[in-house]
């Protein structure tokens, strides 16, 4: 493949898709669905109104607090459950039942407990991120080569020291994959939670633009922003993989 193709091919594909979108709107004579140019207008409108900054900040704040709490609690929990088989066995049925309950199914309970507030959304995000983090950490502990653990024991490490100096670093690459998945789920959940349980944020922007006068160009502009921010979050967390002390865990042959 030639070098110029690396730039022109994606450009061509994008242009083709935009044209297809543009012409299908025109051919179908739809009055509600926006053309790409309308969406562009929508993006500009959002930026100039200044609403966008506030909504983005609200969404990011909720994700930050809920996800942060899940990380702080989930990693130690996963380490302990991964290390002590009895603890894992004991809690396993409860975890297995709670895990597949869509975090969004908690919305009524969350609203009952916290009202229509930030705390309701934060609670949902916390729930949604906790399980992937705990499970990934447990998985990482189980996957830590016995050789490393034996070596740590051999040097006379106490159990807490063994967990923090050997098991945790050995599990870290797997934990980071879990953190990435959890962040993705958190971003998915915050949007949904904001559509139902609160009245600010990017999810609210979308549902509100639709309900208040079917302004679909704003709906799609909002979706694009959600995509771009989600991509930024994912790219951000992927930078972790590049740390020198972590590189061993992300080798591809």
């Amino acid at each position: 493949m030639k070098r110029w193709e690396a730039y022109t091919l994606p450009l061509l594909a994008t242009v083709a898709l935009l044209l297809l979108w543009h012409w299908s709107v025109i051919w179908t004579h739809t009055s509600v669905f926006p053309r790409p140019v309308d969406v562009q207008r929508g993006v500009i409108e959002l930026f100039s109104k200044g609403l966008l900054w506030g909504y983005t900040r609200d969404s990011l704040y909720r994700v930050g607090v809920g996800y942060g709490a899940a990380v702080l609690l989930g990693i130690p929990m996963g380490l302990v459950l991964g290390w002590y088989p009895t603890a894992a066995q004991t809690t396993n049925p409860v975890i297995q039942i709670l895990r597949p309950i869509s975090p969004l199914a908690w919305i009524p309970v969350s609203v009952l407990w916290f009202g229509v507030t930030d705390a309701a959304a934060i609670f949902l995000i916390f729930l949604a991120s906790l399980f992937p983090i705990v499970l990934a950490t447990m998985d990482g502990v189980h996957g830590a080569p016995g050789m490393f653990v034996d070596a740590g024991r051999n040097f006379g490490l106490s159990t807490p020291a063994l967990l923090s100096r050997v098991v945790f670093p050995a599990a870290l690459p797997r934990i980071i994959i879990g953190l990435r998945i959890a962040l993705g789920v958190a971003w998915l959940v915050v949007v949904a939670a904001e559509m139902i349980a609160v009245d600010s944020g990017l999810g609210y922007l979308i549902i509100d633009s639709r309900n208040a006068g079917k302004r679909y160009h704003l709906v799609i502009a909002g979706m694009l922003l959600i995509g771009v921010i989600g991509l930024c979050l994912d790219t951000g967390i992927r930078q972790l993989e590049k740390f020198k002390f972590l590189r061993w865990g992300f080798y591809h042959e």
């Binding site: 080569p145 070596a151 051999n154 006379g156 050997v166 670093p169 061993w248």
Partner: peptide, 15 residues
Amino acid sequence: PRRIFVFQERGVFPW
């Protein structure tokens, strides 16, 4: 710790 086990090179902590 008075007696240390040496594995193959894979026992080195990669982190």
